[in-house]
């Protein structure tokens, strides 16, 4: 019964949002605005549910004694931020923003910067011209890298022009092909979802 109701809800909301796209009627606009508002609010709840799930898992693992100190650090950080926000607020120059700027930002940016090292390592260990397509990939990467470098005393006008042509024509064409494919695929999937043919999101059988 609930499955049918969920499928019906999906169909109605899908149809309404599809139809309103072509209408400028005030009622359609109002309906559109309301559904978009609901969508955002429900989405916020899904984030909260996700966070609640994380807390429950961490507490369970903590009880089972798995990586206790790290779980405590995670939960501590998770509790600390709302606590600071409740006491001092979230505007600029509060302890909440201090933690964000001096703990979260450097940590996150540094974790991300590790990728630079792994990219260099992968270039050395895995980027081999084993076949013609692999050789083309390699040549394309090197041309782009040189064209976006500024080496004193070297002018790469021809190479820069060629790299720009490569980017705007063959590379862009492949990306466009992928984009059109994704576009057509999205339309098909969306239709299947609205019409209840695609039901994997419901889970179960």
């Amino acid at each position: 019964m609930t499955r049918k109701f969920a499928l019906m809800t999906c169909f109605i909301f899908g149809l309404v949002m599809f139809v309103q796209y072509f209408s400028n009627h005030p009622t359609a606009k109002l309906l559109n605005q309301s559904i978009l508002e609901y969508w955002q609010i429900i989405f916020a709840f899904t984030l909260i549910v996700g966070i609640a799930g994380f807390i429950m898992n961490s507490v369970r693992e903590l009880r089972e004694g798995e990586s206790k100190i790290y779980k405590l650090a995670s939960l501590g950080g998770l509790i600390l931020m709302p606590l600071l926000a409740m006491i001092w607020g979230i505007k600029a120059d509060t302890p909440f923003t201090w933690i964000f700027e001096n703990v979260q930002v450097p940590l996150q940016a540094t974790v991300f910067s590790l990728l630079a090292f792994f990219v260099a390592s992968a270039s050395f260990r895995g980027f081999r011209a084993r076949s013609i397509p692999a050789g083309i990939l390699l040549a394309s990467a090197i041309i782009i890298l040189i064209s976006r470098s500024s080496i004193p005393g070297f002018q790469f006008d021809f190479l820069t022009d060629f790299a720009n042509w490569l980017r705007s024509n063959p590379a862009m064409a492949a990306r466009r092909g992928i984009l059109i494919g994704i576009g057509l695929g999205s339309v098909t999937t969306s239709l299947r979802v609205i019409l209840g043919i695609e039901r994997t999101w419901l889970g179960g059988k």
């Binding site: 270039s123 081999r128 390699l138 990467a141 890298l145 470098s149 080496i151």
Partner: peptide
Amino acid sequence: AMLAQTTAHLYVILMIIIGNVIY
């Protein structure tokens, strides 16, 4: 950052070349 960026690009190119020579 441009000098460091250029150096890093050339370093990656060098790694690709060395890797391929060994291969």
